[in-house]
């Protein structure tokens, strides 16, 4: 009896240690929920769900890079590029300041697919630089971040893009049986990635590269090809994120998505994706995003000024990574 009790105690202590940041943030949310009146309302939850939905898609993209011990700092700017391409091609014909005044009304799906493919090409370029030129992912994607921003500025002439077509904005505002399309798309992305990570060779190869890239090479894993798939798919997910964000906001500008890569990396780390590579689950990523969004909303409810929320978010990112690395430090 005594030993089981002690084991349980140990197990609980271990759980607390491994999920410390999630527990702390949940406690904050509970505190805010009790002390503020409008926190536990349908409207607030819907808001949370919709915010989480888009960030989750972006975090899924970044997770592949993180699991293979890389990173993708171009995520936010690619979200922006995706939103600008889609929005510029889907403005209302009668809108006065169209980016392309003579543009005919293009089929919605065609535009979305073109957007996803163009962003995918940038992801492909990321992977090519990383796998073939052997540039560290941090530098390669940092360069790409700036490069994509520049392209986006040139493309839009730094003008905001508004007046989006109803069928396009409908993706973000519409719902079926009361469930927003946004949520459904997000869940589908999550299921797809879960399947990819757990039920395909690609997933196993990805974890193997993160676990030990040299050993993966010896075991016959084509590491270059696997990374190309990872970074390309990631960029396509950023495009989806960008498309949804522009639709939700009814317009976009070059600054859309700025800084989202850091939020995504933070959410992944909070959710147990290790910056040491080889570890990370889709369910964890979802929890990470949810908790991070919950924190943001809680701070809003507490009336913390936006400027201060940045300070808190920055701290959370650093603490999350520090706690993660502690798990893998040699236990002394």
């Amino acid at each position: 009896m005594e030993t089981t009790a002690r084991l349980n105690k140990k197990a609980i202590a271990g759980f607390m240690q491994n999920n410390a940041i999630i527990i702390i943030m949940m406690l904050i949310a509970v505190y805010v929920g009790i002390s503020e009146n409008n926190f536990f309302t349908m409207g607030n939850f819907k808001n949370l769900a919709v915010n989480t939905a888009v960030r989750f898609i972006i975090a899924l993209g970044v997770s592949g890079a993180l699991i293979t011990k890389g990173t993708d700092l171009s995520a936010g700017r690619l979200v922006g590029l995706g939103s600008c391409i889609a929005a510029s091609l889907l403005q209302r014909p009668d809108f006065s300041s169209k980016l392309f005044p003579g543009l005919p009304e293009l089929p919605l799906f065609f535009v979305l697919i073109v957007t996803i493919i163009i962003c995918g090409l940038f992801g492909f370029a990321n992977a090519a630089v990383i796998s073939f030129l052997k540039v560290p992912p941090f530098i390669a994607t940092l360069g790409m971040q700036t490069l994509v921003y520049g392209i986006c500025l040139v493309y839009t002439g730094a003008q905001p893009i508004g007046g989006l077509r109803k069928d396009y904005t409908g993706i973000a505002t519409g719902s079926i049986f009361g469930i927003p399309y946004l949520l459904i798309i997000s869940v589908l992305c999550g299921l797809f990635m879960w399947f990819l990570y757990n039920m395909t060779k690609h997933g196993k190869y990805m974890y193997a590269i993160g676990g030990n890239e040299n050993a993966a090479e010896v075991a016959g894993v084509n590491t270059g090809k696997t990374k190309i798939k990872i970074y390309t798919l990631a960029a396509m997910l950023y495009a989806v994120g960008g498309i949804l964000l522009a639709a939700k906001a009814g317009g976009t500008s070059v600054n859309m998505g700025s800084g989202y890569e850091l939020e995504a990396i933070a959410a992944c780390t909070i959710g147990g994706v290790s910056t040491n590579g080889g570890v990370g689950k889709v369910s964890g990523i979802l929890i990470g995003v949810l908790v991070f969004e919950l924190l943001k909303i809680s701070l809003q409810f507490l009336g913390v000024e936006t400027s201060y929320t940045y300070i808190v978010q920055g701290l959370v990112i650093i603490i999350a990574v520090a706690l993660d690395l502690r798990k893998y430090l040699a236990k002394k």
Partner: peptide, 16 residues
């Protein structure tokens, strides 16, 4: 250095 995937399970190490 070039054999094991330390953080992965035995199962994943065998099947890769």
């Amino acid at each position: 250095a070039t054999g094991i995937f330390g953080v992965l399970s035995i199962s994943e190490n065998v099947a890769i």
